[in-house]
C-alpha cells in the first residue's frame, strides 16, 4: 500500500498541492482525474521522487520513502510511465527491455511482452527508441517495460497523451487486460472517460486539493454530469 500524508508542494509562490492525504490500496485500479494544472502530475512526480514535497510524507508498505531516490523507490516496487515516453538514440527496443529486466532476456521472452502490447516483435527488436517510432509505438513499448517490471505499484501519467484513436483503443484493451491479470496496484492519471471506466476508485483533483474520492459507481456519474455542463468534455480534455 502507498500512503500520502499531509503532502504540500508550492512553486513560485503558488500552492500546487495543498495538504494531500491519499491511500492507494493493493490490488486496485485507481484513476486520478481533474483539470489541467490541478496538481495531478506533480503528485505523480512526488510519488516517483522526481520532486520533493515541501512538507508531508510518503509511505510504501509502511516504509517512509519521502527522501528516497528515484531508483531506490523503483527497487522497492514503484513503477512509473511518463506522459511522453523518453527517447534514446542508440538504445533499441531489445536493449531497453533487457535494461528493465536487469538481465539479458531471450528473444522469445521479449517477443511475449511486445506481443502483449500489440507490437509485431520482429519489426521492433532492433529499432531505436527515437523519432523513428510513433508516439503510439513508444507508449506501447513503455507499457511493455512496466509489464515486464511488474512493480507492486505502477503509476501511468496520462497514457492517452499524444496517441491516435487506434492506439488509444489498444491502450484501453491493454489496461483492461492488466486489471484482470494482475494483483498489483495500478494508478492512472487520465481525463478519458473510457479509462475512468476501468477504475475501481476515482480521485478528483481540483486546484491542488482532492475534491472527491470514491468508488467509480459513485464518482463517475457526477463527473459525466459536470462534463455536460462544460467542465469536462466526453473524451476528457477540458
Amino acid at each position: 500500500m502507498l500512503e500520502i500524508k499531509d503532502v504540500c508542494f508550492s512553486r513560485d509562490g503558488k500552492d500546487i498541492l495543498k495538504n494531500i492525504n491519499l491511500k492507494f490500496e493493493n490490488n486496485k485500479v485507481i484513476v486520478i482525474t481533474g483539470a489541467n494544472g490541478s496538481g495531478k502530475s506533480t503528485l505523480a512526480k512526488i510519488i516517483m521522487g522526481i520532486e520533493k514535497p515541501d512538507s508531508g510524507s510518503i509511505y510504501f508498505n509502511g516504509i517512509d520513502i519521502t527522501n528516497m531516490k528515484i531508483n531506490e523507490r523503483a527497487n522497492l516496487g514503484i513503477g512509473f510511465a511518463f506522459q511522453q515516453p523518453v527517447k534514446f538514440k542508440g538504445i533499441t527496443v531489445e536493449d531497453i527491455l533487457n535494461i528493465t529486466a536487469g538481465k539479458k532476456l531471450n528473444r522469445s521472452e521479449i517477443c511475449q511482452y511486445l506481443s502483449d502490447v500489440g507490437l509485431c516483435t520482429k519489426d521492433y527488436l532492433t529499432r531505436e527508441l527515437d523519432s523513428n517510432l510513433s508516439g503510439g509505438e513508444l507508449k506501447r513499448i513503455e507499457i511493455a517495460m512496466l509489464a515486464l517490471k511488474n512493480s507492486e505499484f505502477t503509476l501511468f501519467d496520462e497514457p492517452e497523451a499524444g496517441i491516435d484513436l487506434w492506439s488509444f483503443n489498444s491502450l484501453i484493451d491493454i489496461f483492461e487486460n492488466m486489471k484482470n491479470n494482475t494483483k498489483n496496484t495500478i494508478v492512472i492519471i487520465s481525463h478519458q472517460e473510457r479509462i475512468l471506466n476501468i477504475a475501481d476508485e476515482i480521485v478528483v483533483f481540483d486546484n491542488g486539493s482532492i475534491k472527491e474520492i470514491g468508488k467509480k459507481s459513485k464518482v463517475l456519474p457526477k463527473l459525466l454530469i459536470s462534463s455536460k455542463n462544460g467542465r469536462y468534455t466526453k473524451e476528457g480534455n477540458e
Partner: peptide
C-alpha cells in the same frame, strides 16, 4: 530519470 525509474 527514466532509467533510474527502472531501478538503475
Amino acid at each position: 530519470i527514466k532509467l533510474m525509474s527502472l531501478g538503475l
